[in-house]
């Protein structure tokens, strides 16, 4: 049991990554009751794009820390564009025709296309991502934590907070919330709700891409685990509730910690199982998520 604090600490950072991707699921669900099932691929693409930008900058004589910081806004913009493409090609028509299955198949298909594209550009092997922070672990008593793990927690919280503040404070954010409340009524206010939905897809992929460059320095960048990651983050979104902002953080931490525990006490080979089991359990017993109210009748 003396490893418990260490397992929890290690679970927190990966849990926050799940939380950010799950937060992305919430963003599009709120405005359009649809989800981008290519979120795992969006994360992987963000990580790979970030890898290219960072290594290019380093090759041009820029220090790794600065290169990493310069890369972030570029990856955020890339993520937004990628999300906008998904909305335009996979979702818009399905929403217009009220097709219940259309967007599910389309976003899965687009995820596969993006994965293939990435494999052709960056190859199938995972790429080592230059770490902007020292890789030596800090020790707190018996617990060892990498600086990058702390950066993940801070970065993830900062991103979710920024989106929340935007939604609450700015008139455009209020328009997003209005669209989530009642799309027709929002239209009557002069809000272009189609644009709001496209924007929520852009933000959702942006969140995933950001998660991709946060996690890559401690894992790697690559598409091989994208689909599993997307599914696990979906489990977190369901656990946390598709409509509750705070729930995904709790859900992410539950899953992250459960995974490190499973890896330690059972076998790392079963690391992916808890997330999928949790998903099955929540879907059977509490379809609205532990913290949310909306049901997901269309999934």
């Amino acid at each position: 049991m003396q490893y418990l604090p260490q397992l929890i600490a290690s679970g927190i950072s990966i849990g926050m990554i799940y939380a950010v991707v799950a937060f992305g699921y919430q963003l599009t669900f709120a405005t359009s009751k649809t989800l981008n099932f290519g979120q795992g691929e969006a994360l992987a693409l963000g990580g790979l794009t970030g890898w290219s930008v960072t290594t290019w900058l380093i090759a041009h004589g820029i220090g790794v820390g600065v290169a990493y910081l310069l890369m972030i806004p570029i990856v955020l913009i890339f993520g937004m564009l990628q999300g906008a493409v998904v909305e335009r090609l996979g979702v818009r028509q399905a929403i217009k025709t009220k097709s219940e299955a259309g967007w599910i198949m389309a976003t899965i298909a687009l995820g596969i296309i993006f994965k293939n594209l990435a494999e052709n550009i960056w190859g199938r092997d995972a790429l080592k991502f230059p770490s902007p922070l020292p890789e030596a672990a800090l020790t707190f008593g018996s617990v060892r934590i990498q600086p990058m793990e702390i950066a993940i927690v801070i970065g993830a919280l900062a991103m979710m907070l920024a989106v929340e503040l935007f939604n609450r404070r700015s008139i455009f954010g209020k328009a997003v919330v209005a669209t989530a409340n009642d799309r027709d009524a929002a239209g009557l206010m002069g809000i272009n709700t189609g644009l709001v939905i496209a924007f929520s897809y852009a933000l959702s992929s942006m969140a995933a891409a950001f998660a991709g460059v946060l996690v890559a320095p401690i894992t790697t960048a690559g598409v091989s685990s994208a689909a599993v990651l997307g599914l696990k983050a979906f489990a977190v979104a369901i656990i946390g509730g598709l409509s509750s902002g705070l729930g995904v953080i709790v859900g992410g931490l539950i899953l992250g910690i459960t995974e490190t525990m499973t890896g330690y006490f059972i076998s790392t080979g079963y690391k992916d199982v808890p997330g999928l089991v949790l998903l099955l359990l929540v879907l059977s017993f509490k379809p609205s998520g532990l913290f949310g109210k909306a049901t997901i009748k269309k999934v």
């Binding site: 008139i171 455009f172 209020k174 328009a175 919330v177 209005a178 989530a180 409340n181 009642d182 027709d184 009524a185 929002a186 009557l188 206010m189 002069g190 809000i191």
Partner: peptide, 25 residues
């Protein structure tokens, strides 16, 4: 509209601001 269709999760003040959305943008 019929049945009011106010924005339930936003404050009274924000509902009024949203009514002025085209003026604010």
């Amino acid at each position: 509209p019929e049945a009011r269709r106010i924005f339930p999760t936003q404050s009274v003040f924000d509902n009024l601001l949203l009514g002025a959305f085209p003026r604010l943008t």
